[in-house]
Design a protein around this nucleic acid. Structure first.
Lengths: 124, 124, 124, 124
DNA sequence: GTGGTCTAGACCACC
DNA sequence: GTGGTCTAGACCACC
């Protein structure tokens, strides 16, 4: 956790950056069901943000069903595995479609792409 | 040609942007061997750049073997097919490696990725 | 619109009171699809609340699919009829179940209740 | 008997709360004709009230014809069945009218309401 | 300690 | 004008 800082010059709002960072940790498995998130005030202090800003990120993630907060006892990671899997799959599909689009626009054929993928998949 | 504008706010130098745009047109086939490029002055006017900037992009592309200039008759596209193919392949490989890295960091296995790719390759 | 004031002594948060009042207007038909809501600042001024508090009520209603905001042009009522109908039906069912519970706890039979309902339904 | 406590923060006077609780027990059948009520002092002690307060509730219920006290032998439940039935009916009618009012204000028609009531009456 | 609500007010982008 | 984000800080309830 907390391998990130906030980029104030980014047009992406700070609360979205917090949210995205936590989602990335969920998807990578660095945060698992039942893990405790840092308290709103603690994370705000570390990231040099106002508590309200961190709270907004947490509310958002709670609404979307990834974490759950309790008065007096903080936020815990709590999601349905299938929900997270669908999110991940959606992102991966988008990435791959964008890759495909570039490949086709450079004139590669399906076969070219398949050969390249097979070659690289077995060498990394 | 010229479906692009210069992004002055970008940290990428203008001459690199010009170069990249022309390379993209080469790779996509919109520019072919023998095609005539717009004159340095003409392109500079359209993109609102100093002619020196456009000239720098053209010199670069000439050194790298993609276009060729002749005194008094402008620049023509002229490249060895294998050279362009290698460039394209290198770019595609980089894109695919970056895709793979994301997929692995989200916890997908080689098999997951292969299944997704096969599924999307045959439906687009 | 705006037939309500905020009860500061209530344990119900102000933003919830705003939200409920608007929902009641939606359910009663006083607010219809396409109607414009008062601006956040305007409503805040009238209800003597901070703009953030009104904004929270509006965000909530937007998330739940009852209104829609656009930067620079305010919030409009926008909901799917079925969604509102379901909300209304759910509330009415809860009310009726609670009525039934009271009636049964007072010892009335199904027949007693049916008679009373038939009598009152046709006289109001 | 005595499944209740006194809410000191309520604006409803304590003696009214005692009275209401006993009436509810009468209406539900938990107290029947001939049952003995706890003595004034006993109930006062349990509810942490002044005996005068409980006495006021009992005098009231006696005046209204629901219970009867005898010197030296405490209070017994004693009411005319029709009197209690009328009280119950009046309360139920008030509840139902208030339900109807809400339903109409949400735009439901008589037929909507009848359908809902029939459906719920036969399923609970 | 924890989160939840709220105020007062700033600055930005969109119109 | 409009909404969107954010800060600084208060006060409350729950633990």
């Amino acid at each position: 956790m907390l391998r990130f800082g906030i980029d104030n010059s980014s047009p992406v709002p700070a609360y979205q950056q917090v949210k995205q960072s936590i989602l990335i940790d969920l998807m990578s498995g660095r945060l698992s069901n039942g893990d405790r998130l840092p308290s709103i005030r603690e994370l705000a202090k570390i990231l040099k943000l106002n508590p309200n800003t961190v709270a907004k990120a947490y509310y958002n993630l709670e609404e979307e069903g990834f974490i759950q907060g309790k008065q007096g006892s903080g936020y815990l990671v709590k999601f349905h595995k299938t929900k997270l899997d669908n999110l991940k799959l959606g992102i991966l599909e988008d990435e791959f479609r964008s890759f495909l689009q570039k490949a086709f626009s450079m004139g590669f054929t399906r076969k070219d792409i398949e050969d390249l993928m097979r070659r690289l998949l077995n060498h990394e």
